[in-house]
Nucleic acid binder design. Structure first.
Lengths: 138, 138
DNA sequence: CAATAAATGCACTTCCATTGCACTAATTAT
DNA sequence: ATAATTAGTGCAATGGAAGTGCATTTATTG
């Protein structure tokens, strides 16, 4: 049994052929992917399957969903220690308005936000839009 | 000529009856509103009109659009000196997962974000999700 | 008052997210 | 091992919101 299979099982996700492929696909991509991207990569499989695979992955802490402001949900693998649940560990996302790609800047943690009296934070989403390093020509 | 009319003209927006009503509606609401909210408040008017009114308001610095992560665009009046264009002046938004309302925390500016080499920031969106003061019972 | 421009209303389209249901594959119990 | 049960997949369809084209009405300007 290979590594991916073992990992999925550890996350309580049954390692079906499709799930393994999707996982590998996302691991090889460095950027966040949309359902449509996966759909285009696996034309043999149905959109629903891919959709539900992502949801399953999300529920089991394998990927996190990203709202990058484009209106299209993106997904990225959680890094080890991603802990997308715990507020303190949230990283920010960058969306390039030129190439339209979204990346996790995992090393950039979101600073603590002070809220007015009575407000309780459960989740923070921080998206920076601009030009990525690839497109800025550096 | 009343105040609202004058204000709209100052912003280069012709103060039609509908626009004045929408403006007043948004001013009276303390929270960000969705197109659907306005639609429900003005059933006599057409959705397209309301939609385009918001776009017109947005283009002329009267409202700013808010992506609070619900997938539904919200709009809120710009405060005087809102300057939603200038990155430094951006405030954060709070979305209550209980009452589903979104508010501008205009006094809370978004801290400066350090990006990796080569990344250029043009826009920042920071949304905190949690329980608002009304719902937390304070 | 006529000509022009802006605003409005209606119908329609598109796009993505999501669900219901049938079918197949895999797992567990007998 | 085989039947019973559960999980996964595929197809079809729905829903919700954003956006567009065009005809009509209203306002502005010459």
């Amino acid at each position: 049994m290979n590594e991916v299979e073992k990992f999925l099982e550890d996350q309580k996700v049954r390692p079906t052929a499709m799930r393994i492929l999707i996982y590998k696909y996302m691991a090889q991509k460095k950027i966040a992917v949309a359902l449509t991207d996966i759909e285009n990569a696996f034309t043999k499989s149905d959109r629903t399957t891919l959709y539900r695979t992502l949801k399953t992955f999300e529920e089991n802490g394998i990927v996190h969903q990203i709202d990058d402001g484009t209106g299209i949900s993106k997904y990225a693998l959680c890094e080890n220690g991603c802990n997308c649940e715990i507020e303190q560990d949230l990283h920010l996302h960058f969306h390039c308005s030129n190439c339209n790609e979204t990346v996790c800047l995992t090393e950039h943690k979101i600073p603590h936000i002070n809220l007015p009296e009575g407000y309780l934070a459960e989740d923070v989403n921080l998206v920076v839009k601009g030009i990525c390093e690839k497109c800025s020509g550096q």
